[in-house]
Design a protein around this nucleic acid. Sequence first.
DNA 1: TCAATATATGAATAAGTATTCATATGATAA
DNA 2: TTATCATATGAATACTTATTCATATATTGA
Lengths: 116, 116
Amino acid sequence: MSGCGHEAEHELAAKLARENMPSEEEVGRVGALFKAISEPARLKILFALRQGELCVGHIVEAVGGNQSAVSHQLRILKAAGIVKARRDGQNIAYSLADGHVVAVLELACTHLHCKI
Amino acid sequence: MSGCGHEAEHELAAKLARENMPSEEEVGRVGALFKAISEPARLKILFALRQGELCVGHIVEAVGGNQSAVSHQLRILKAAGIVKARRDGQNIAYSLADGHVVAVLELACTHLHCKI
DNA sequence: TCAATATATGAATAAGTATTCATATGATAA
DNA sequence: TTATCATATGAATACTTATTCATATATTGA
């Protein structure tokens, strides 16, 4: 298929690449996680929640935008297992489901030389 | 704005969240990185390149799809600084620009319990 | 029970993104 | 220089995703 001149050197890598390619299902899971945290509006919510549990009103204050948009984003983050919700009277308090995603976020920021 | 009952406990977090919110520019940079690696087709290319440098033909073999689609994805990855290209005769060999993104990828996979 | 507040949600639209097709570019070999 | 091969690219289309608006639900206090 590819008459690439580096048969010797590249052929092994190509073979390994085919053999070690994760399944569609795994690639999909990884992609879905990154997609969930790729939208600036959602990233801001995660940055906000690093400070601790916040109810929706406070999240809206912290990240800007309107209530409905924030609520939709929260639903997506919750569906992705990134945040969890807890009812507290009239309010619903959101918090990070665990430290995993923040660890990924902070590693990415370090590499991008972001001071967060 | 929010008559959240946890004034005492949440107000501090809300204040910190506003104060420590990264700039639009930083949030945008982080989001762009995650967006680049959120598409399954591009993720597969990165998984393939973990094995070493590959020319386009071999990448097409490894990830499937047609030549044009792969080329467009490579352009996006290159624009994001994730892969680099080197002409080698008729071929163009692609490789990972550095270990940063793969580190992020592997951390995410670990947390998702993917065996890659 | 009624009014007020916080949050969620469905539907419509707008915006963004990927994929495909046809074709262009650039390198090599004849 | 012409034919061929590998790769890139522009434009069109198809798809996905976000945002907005209006309204629904759930909780609390009067």
